[in-house]
Computed example of a mutant assay.
Amino acid sequence: MIRTRFAAIAASLALLACTQSVAASVIDVAKTPWCGCCAVWVERMRAAGFELAVRNVDDLNPVADKAGVPRNLRGCHTAKVDGYVIEGHVPAADIRRLLKERPDAVGLSVPGMPIGSPGMENGTRVDRYQVVLIMRDGRHRVWSVHGGTS
């Protein structure tokens, strides 16, 4: 009986620690001052419970270069959280999964600006798009797929 209670308490504390570490992570976002969809993505992430620090830059290429984002995987803003890059319109659920699973990788990217991704909403239209995991060797693999059919 005591072991069962101890196990339940330990599990609860572990879950609480994981939840707090994700919630306490600040996403540092670099975006251009004229990008409206980036500002909306920031709003979506705040609504999802993340804390964000936002800075405007005139040129994102040096930021993405320094972060290790290959040119073919770039979006319209570059963010960092807990040592990971979040490039473009990545959904909050994928960021949470990244921070929970902690793969040995550079981070996540939604290349381009797909309609229906967070910050790129356009009515009910949601195009099919992939979130990719950027590996340390520059390769990437699909992390998740959103929207569309087939």
Rank of each mutant, 00 (worst) to 15 (best):
N72I: 14
P33C: 12
H146R: 11
D58Y: 14
A53Y: 13
A8I: 01
T78H: 02
E121R: 05
P70M: 15
T32E: 11
V29D: 11
V85A: 11
A105N: 02
A53F: 06
V131G: 11
G138I: 10
E121W: 06
R139S: 15
A8R: 12
G107L: 04
V142Y: 03
H146V: 04
A23C: 09
N122W: 07
S144F: 03
A39R: 14
A11E: 03
G116H: 05
A8L: 11
R55Q: 14
I9H: 03
C37M: 12
V57N: 07
L52Y: 02
I9Y: 05
G119D: 08
D65E: 15
R5H: 05
V26Y: 07
R141H: 06
V42W: 00
A24K: 12
V22S: 08
T4R: 13
H140K: 08
N61W: 15
L133S: 06
A23G: 08
V42C: 04
T19N: 01
K31F: 04
L108M: 02
D82G: 05
G116R: 04
D94L: 10
R125C: 04
I115C: 02
G138F: 06
V57H: 12
F6D: 10
M1Q: 02
A92L: 00
R139P: 02
G123Q: 11
P62E: 14
P111V: 07
P91A: 05
V81D: 04
L16Y: 01
G83R: 09
M113C: 01
V29R: 11
E43S: 05
C37V: 14
I27F: 05
V131W: 06
V145N: 05
I2P: 00
E51Y: 05
T78I: 00
W41C: 08
S12H: 07
P103E: 06
V106C: 01
A53S: 15
